[in-house]
């Protein structure tokens, strides 16, 4: 297998996901299978190939430098799970 349980646990922390021990097992197996499959790409020599990201390659799309209306504070907070009507609230970062 190309990934270990430790790899998966490390990635889960980077991805801010919590996985149950049984999920770590499944994920290790499934991710290894997919990562092994995508190794297919290494068959190709791409040394002189430029990456591609757009069908009609556009570069430097600038917007006019004009202020536009943005969401009101009320609208911006309207979907937040926890606010004091002015700010987003989160659990303590440093503990309490």
């Amino acid at each position: 297998m190309s990934l270990t349980r430790q790899d998966v646990e490390k990635v889960a922390l980077l991805a801010r996901l919590r996985l149950a021990p049984s999920e770590v097992d499944t994920m290790t197996r499934q991710l290894s299978q997919i990562v092994d499959y995508v190794q297919l790409l290494s068959e190709l020599n791409t040394d002189d190939v430029q990456p591609l990201a757009h069908a009609i390659e556009v570069t430097n799309v600038f917007a006019a430098d004009q202020p536009l209306d943005s969401l009101s504070r009320e609208e911006a907070l309207s979907n937040a799970p926890h606010t004091d009507d002015e700010y987003y609230l989160v659990p303590p970062v440093l503990g309490s």
């Binding site: 801010r16 989160v90 659990p91 303590p92 970062v93 440093l94």
Partner: peptide, 12 residues
């Protein structure tokens, strides 16, 4: 910490 824990539980 509680914040990271919140992210991870929420997303899980």
């Amino acid at each position: 910490n509680p914040l990271v824990r919140m992210y991870r539980r929420t997303r899980a």
